[in-house]
Design a protein around this nucleic acid. Structure first.
Lengths: 213, 213
DNA sequence: GTCTATAAGATGATAGAC
DNA sequence: GTCTATCATCTTATAGAC
């Protein structure tokens, strides 16, 4: 493995295990087993290193699920795959990397760029499936696929941070969301009944999906 | 205002504006206009200072909404108040403080304790309302109030981090969640029809709310 | 309670030998 | 590409004067 790759890997590990607050050129280099000066030779700054590590990780993760997403045909199937993706990304630490990246990105334009990129590759992939699966459902009339894809991704990041602080609490939160998934399926099962009710509600509140221009 | 309070306030501001990565005894003291050594005199360590600032902020915020929560009588009212709380807490920067606290808490037991406390005071308050409002609804049969309260809090934290990185993206995510709120109301309106459908689904999937022991 | 001074260490980054 | 050596700066934390 090249020094560059060793540094990228070590950065991902450091974000998961120590968090971005304790990350430095020296701690990452030590973890990678290489000299500290090589961080600056290969990446220029520590922020660029972290950004590159996050980009490569998100690209890799999303590509890993591409065919799985493409194969989803039903809302139930999407919810099931969603739970699986979440469990796997949690295990590998990829969500933790995203969470630490975003926390550090609040005052660092380089990290912010990497965070936008990562959120966008996930959004792009999830949005396609959500749109396809929701189209024939009564839900399709109400929910904006792109917005929903972003909301789900952001929610998972919040849950990951919560997990690091109170694991049992986070588990019960996740279970509650799985229960909400059941509700969505119910609404879907009701079909035309739900569609009419949704239509009536929208006319009353005016809160529906914005018309495409 | 006492030096102690100046430091607490300055810490909250620093978390919102600079993030926990750039927070140090010196930066906070400068912001508070006091001597750096006073951080250690009053709080012992920087972590204790951050923890105390987060605790006081969360206690204060939750207390501010107590009567509002108590007055909520319907699911629609709860969703409306939820949107209002989120908008206000976003503006005041309280969610940003929570997000930075949790990011830093992943490897710091003192910060983790403060984060658990903050999540718990919110959970406690929200859980009561959710349980009361959901009881007569078909949703009451499916959703665990405590878990849902935690999930919503965690999701808001993820959205806050996303907001700092991609404001328009976060806005569209929030809009999508508001649309989901409409769905919940629809399900609630359907009453007995929905209740029967929920019952049927639960028997099929076995994913319902765990029975209280 | 507040200040100055200072210790003891970590950090980003660079120059220059190999 | 990789190493050593080094800077200037920042960090937590303490001792001791006031």
């Amino acid at each position: 493995m090249s020094t560059r790759d060793k540094l990228l890997r070590a950065t991902q590990e450091a974000l998961v295990e120590d968090g971005i607050a304790h990350l430095s050129a020296r701690t990452v280099a030590a973890r990678a087993g290489v000299n500290q000066a090589l961080v600056f030779y290969h990446f220029g700054t520590v922020s660029e290193l972290v950004g590159a590590a996050a980009r490569s990780l998100s690209d890799q993760s999303v590509a890993h699920y591409r065919e799985r997403f493409a194969a989803v045909q039903s809302l139930g199937g999407l919810l099931a795959l969603g739970e699986e993706v979440h469990a796997h990304e949690q295990d590998t630490g990829n969500v933790a990397v995203m969470a630490q990246l975003m926390a550090g990105a609040q005052r660092d334009e380089v990290l912010a760029g990497a965070a936008r990129h990562a959120m966008d590759v996930w959004r792009q992939e999830v949005e396609t499936v959500v749109r396809r699966v929701l189209e024939p459902s009564p839900l399709g009339a109400v929910v904006d696929a792109a917005g929903l894809a972003r909301a789900v991704s952001a929610a998972f990041i919040g849950l990951e941070l919560y997990e690091g602080v109170d694991a049992p609490g986070a588990a019960s939160a996740l279970a509650a969301l799985a229960q909400l998934g059941v509700l969505v399926e119910v609404l879907d099962d009701l079909g035309p009944v739900a569609r009419r009710a949704v239509g009536a509600r929208l006319r009353r509140t005016g809160k529906g999906r914005p018309e495409p221009r």
